[in-house]
Amino acid sequence: MSQELTRVLIESGVKIALFFVIVLTLIAYLTLAERRVSAWIQDRRGPNRVGPFGLLQPVADGIKFLFKEAITPLNAYRPVYLLAPALIFVPALVTFSVIPVGPPVRLFGYDIPLQIADVDNGVLIILAFASMGVYGVALAGWSSNNKYSLMGGIRSSSQMISYELAMGISLVGVLMATGSLRLNDIVQQQAQRGWNMFWQLPGFIIFLTAAFAETNRLPFDLPEAESELVAGYHTEYSGMRFSMFYMAEYANMITASALLATLYCGGYHVPGLARLGLSGNVAALLGAAAFGVKMGAFLFLYLWVRWTLPRFRYDQLMNLGWKVLLPASLLHLLWVSLIVLKGWV
């Protein structure tokens, strides 16, 4: 094994482990944040008993999930039933590997990008794995052998397909402005010409709406609408298997927020940072922190919307997806192509 290869392997291994730990911790504390924020919005206190400010609550939840009995329904199709939680959790985590968290850091004499894989087709890989998420939900619904689960699964697969279209087309606007599928190039281009969020506002709003629908969060959480479907696709799951779905929901939220920050809000770019003349590593860390702040803002938006807006009806959801968002994204595409063609940006 050559020395270069060893270095790359060690570097990637460390980065993967680091990302994994960070995202999992983030998931754990996002569950706490959700409960605290919801309490705050509803003028309650929320969980504050386990540890200072309830900070150990996720640990307690985790232990509880581990000790619960994992039940398999009698007529469930067992291999698929066991596979489904993994199928929904893995794509959410894998997507994170192509997102650039910060500019390269210089450590031990090497330039180390704060990104697991800087791929040419970054955006396409994200789309590919986003479209994989539907299998977990649909298969969980199908294999549980429960009519509510099945309905949840069918709803989610049609919902995710419908909103993927609008999401993809609004994304094309960003790609046209950059002329590249590499996420680092998209961030660099935004640093030069201003964030996409401002001059592609319609695309941003469409992408944001579609991201809510893709992650099955309120106001689009029809696949698990408890007033109609008990708990939708994960009705029959218990214990650690249920918590996989629970964690996957938060993992999806984190990935979607990171994507929104990268594609539309300049990623790790901080306006005016270059003028301060800070040295490489400090600037890189500040960039990474800025990325964290932007991601956090979107995560808060997710929580805020969930506890503010009521749920859509299913026909309203489909109408919004096909009759409003899809034509709007096509119009937006025309607008962006006009701007790019004329060179106004």
């Binding site: 087709n121 396409l124 890989i125 789309l127 590919a128 479209s131 994989m132 069918i154 397909i161 993927e164």
Partner: peptide, 28 residues
């Protein structure tokens, strides 16, 4: 063929196969 690999996953695995899955679930 990196682009084809990505397209293969998006179009085939992400769209066409979901359609099959959806029909099988619909017909139950």
């Amino acid at each position: 063929a990196q682009f084809l690999a990505a397209i293969q996953v998006i179009v085939y695995a992400g769209a066409i196969m979901v359609l099959f899955l959806f029909v099988i679930m619909l017909l139950n």
